[in-house]
């Protein structure tokens, strides 16, 4: 049985922890609203661009396939896979970062078992230690996001540029992007998406654009212009979704932590009061029996 003083110290320390988790929860709730709005505002652009690229790409791929951009056609090999893992810079977000990293590691194992070479490109700080331990020496590059508060289009552009350069220099053949899709404050889904080369959906999207569409300049020129932009936009979307997911996960995790701290405080309070009463009772008994003895 700990002494009354120890109980009091413990209770106070739990109380100050609760204050921190509560503050973090409220900060996350405020940021979540903003991040969610940003993620939702970006959806029309990315989905529209994706649709246009898909229909153009399936059209060109359906034709000769000659002279198509390597961003569409691929390098013709399937040896080196680059896993682009987008994490956050901060913890206190429950299993948010761990879930993304786990998805990436599962995929990496799968690819290595199939005899492929796996490399990592990391965005954000949190995933680095785990991946470095599991696959030492396989992190080829790291994009630092600690300097900025919110993901911007310029960031996505920088990453996309670097990836495209690496791709055209033959550093890898296929790039997969890992991020967390924001579903609600309670549910974030770790998602994998192939970004290079562009995946053409197999459905009958071809009918979306009638054969009579005119192109200016040519279809190939438009596609060459759109493909790098599409990569940027997909990255941008991933960063925004990630940001919203992080805030959502953080809010939920901190809410739980605050509640747990409350339970713990109640328990300690009861224990403390019981101890205090026991002490008083003992004292009374001592006084009374002392008086009786006289």
């Amino acid at each position: 049985m700990p002494s009354l003083k120890e109980l009091k110290i413990r209770r106070d320390s739990v109380k100050s922890t609760q204050k921190i988790t509560k503050a973090k929860q409220m900060v996350a709730a405020a940021k979540l609203r903003k991040a969610q709005a940003a993620a939702e505002a970006a959806r029309p652009y990315s989905s529209r661009l994706e649709a246009v690229v898909a229909s153009l790409a399936s059209k060109i791929a359906g034709g000769s396939g000659e002279g198509a951009s390597p961003l569409l056609a691929g390098t013709g090999k399937d040896e080196v896979h680059l896993l682009v893992v987008a994490n956050s810079d901060r913890g206190l977000a429950g299993a948010f970062n761990a879930n993304i990293v786990k998805a990436a590691i599962v995929k990496a194992r799968e690819l290595e078992d199939a005899g492929k070479k796996v490399q990592f490109y990391l965005i954000g700080r949190k995933g680095r230690p785990v991946i470095n331990r599991t696959f030492p020496g396989q992190i080829v590059a790291h994009y630092d996001t600690t300097g900025t508060k919110e993901p911007g289009f310029a960031q996505a552009q920088a990453v996309a540029h670097e990836l495209t350069d690496m791709y055209l220099n033959g550093k890898f053949d296929i790039a997969h992007l890992f991020y967390s899709r924001f579903k609600s404050a309670l549910a974030q889904i770790p998602t994998e998406q192939q970004i290079i080369p562009v995946k053409i959906p197999a459905d009958a999207d071809r009918n979306a654009i009638a054969a009579t569409v005119e192109y200016e300049p040519s279809e190939e020129a438009i596609l060459d212009d759109l493909l790098p932009r599409n990569i940027t936009v997909q990255l941008f979307k991933a960063l925004l979704e990630n940001n919203a997911s992080e805030q959502g996960a953080s809010m939920t995790a901190m809410d739980n932590a605050t509640r747990n701290a409350g339970d713990l405080i109640n328990k300690l309070n009861i224990q403390y009061n019981r101890g205090r009463q026991a002490a008083i009772t003992t004292e009374l008994v001592e006084i009374i029996s002392g008086a009786e003895a006289l």
Partner: peptide, 19 residues
Amino acid sequence: PGTDGDFGVLEGHAPFMST
């Protein structure tokens, strides 16, 4: 402002794509 020159779009324009 299209890459190959400005173009105006009115209602009922033919399907068209341009940078």
